[in-house]
Design a binder for these strands. Structure first.
Lengths: 245, 245
DNA sequence: CGGCTCCTTGAGCCCAGTCAAAGTCCGTGG
DNA sequence: CCACGGACTTTGACTGGGCTCAAGGAGCCG
């Protein structure tokens, strides 16, 4: 259950057994099951816990007064929602499930305890926050500069690398359990246009997406198409020098 | 010199005199002058300092291989670039000046010293990071959902509130020392379209922008137009309960 | 006063949006 | 096992916001 979380952080640094135990215990706190399309926190709520996704997909989103919705981030297994969030009184955005989700709700104190117990964990959590911020910046670039085809391709590649980092891929293929409408709200496109763009990618042999399974047939080629540079995901074990010996 | 920085953080919490002194000293470290359109850090560089803008405007940006450029964030006086950045080995984006800039370069140790010396400063720095992240999310929403007019109006309002928070406005007017091309790279529009959209806003009496001075004639009206909700800026002294007595 | 850089304007085009209607898939209950 | 209903996907026709290319105007600095 706690595996994706620990596995994600171990892309930054390796932990000792004691640290792994500490992290696994946290990931077992306040476990809850949710259905698809349920709110986890609503905009305006006061944050109570740090949520950790154990299984399923969720998203951060923001809704304008007139109903337009933008998905701001995806949460896949192993993703943590803002370990510092308590400093803000009110959520400025909502978090909702996309599929049925299992999550852990970790208390603020627990986070502090872990940070105090292990500087390596503190650094790993900081790294996680920086990674989240980096992804957010890349989405800004996509929405500002990339065409529909590039955006879609870029997102598929980002998810491939993120899911690979937590062991949820097979070669260049993974479960993508979301709808085209969700993709539209993510990419700032209409669902009709997402559909047409998907068909282009399929027709040109770049991808297959059948059932929930997405396969990227030639990742380097798709990377070239999407102007994808994986550096922003910081998944190359930069924290290796901190590893527990 | 250090005023905008301290003033910004005091939107979250009030400091004791000792804390103010500590912050002011940090803001005096490694002060450097830069011209307009100079790089502060390039993508791929290893971060050496935390940069604090004392005067002038700078931006975070990212450039695609084919030359398209997206401005990801603005730095105005009082803004700090990523106090945790050292955890990452390589910058995944660049930071450059837009106007001549005075900045302080604060060492990692100095940041740690301040955090250790005052939990209130530690919280204020964490608040600053969360605010930065929140602004990034709102830009994602703008690029994904808002029309050209809405984006422009939204940005002008955001800058009004951010500059007001550091005392750089007069009523609803402030210095906006950037070009229309910069705005285009920020808003994901062409400079031609930015120009036409600006003319619309001028013609409808919403704004004046002459010399470097931008004036918003009726902020509430513009807020309605842009679907602007100031909550995301977290400038309502949420940390008041932490104030130094 | 010459030469930047930046702003403005016009014309034509295209990417992506909207609206509307089928088609497909899948889970549920009879 | 099949029929039904709802959610999701696909398709067509048309529209429009924003882009490109290109040229001219304005302001500012040396």
């Amino acid at each position: 259950m706690a595996k994706p979380f620990i596995r994600k952080l171990e892309n930054f640094t390796r932990f000792s057994d004691a640290e792994r135990k500490l992290l696994a215990e946290s990931a077992g706190q306040g476990v809850r099951q949710l259905g698809a399309r349920e709110d986890i926190i609503r905009e305006g709520d006061g944050p109570r816990h740090v949520n950790l996704v154990l299984e399923g997909w969720a998203c951060r989103y923001k809704q304008l007064q007139d109903g337009r919705r933008q998905i701001i981030a995806f949460f896949v297994p192993g993703d943590l929602c803002d370990p510092h969030i308590f400093i803000l009184r009110k959520m400025d955005h909502g978090i909702a499930t996309l599929t049925p989700v299992t999550l852990a709700r970790i208390t603020q104190e627990r986070i502090e305890t872990m940070r105090a117990a292990s500087p390596r964990i503190a650094d790993a959590l900081a790294w996680d926050m920086l990674l989240t911020a980096s992804i957010q910046r890349e989405w800004t670039v996509s929405l500002g500069q990339r065409s529909a085809t590039e955006r879609l391709a870029h997102l598929f590649l980002e998810l491939l690398l993120r899911l690979r980092a937590v062991g949820l891929t097979e070669d260049a293929s993974y479960d993508l359990p979301i709808t085209q409408a969700d993709l539209a709200d993510t990419l700032g496109l209409s669902s009709v246009h997402v559909n047409r763009t998907l068909q282009e990618l399929r027709a040109s042999g770049q991808i297959t997406w059948k059932g929930r399974r997405l396969t990227i047939h030639n990742p380097p080629a798709l990377m070239a198409l999407a102007l994808f540079d994986p550096a922003y995901l910081h998944l190359d074990r930069e924290g290796a020098h901190l590893d527990a010996s």
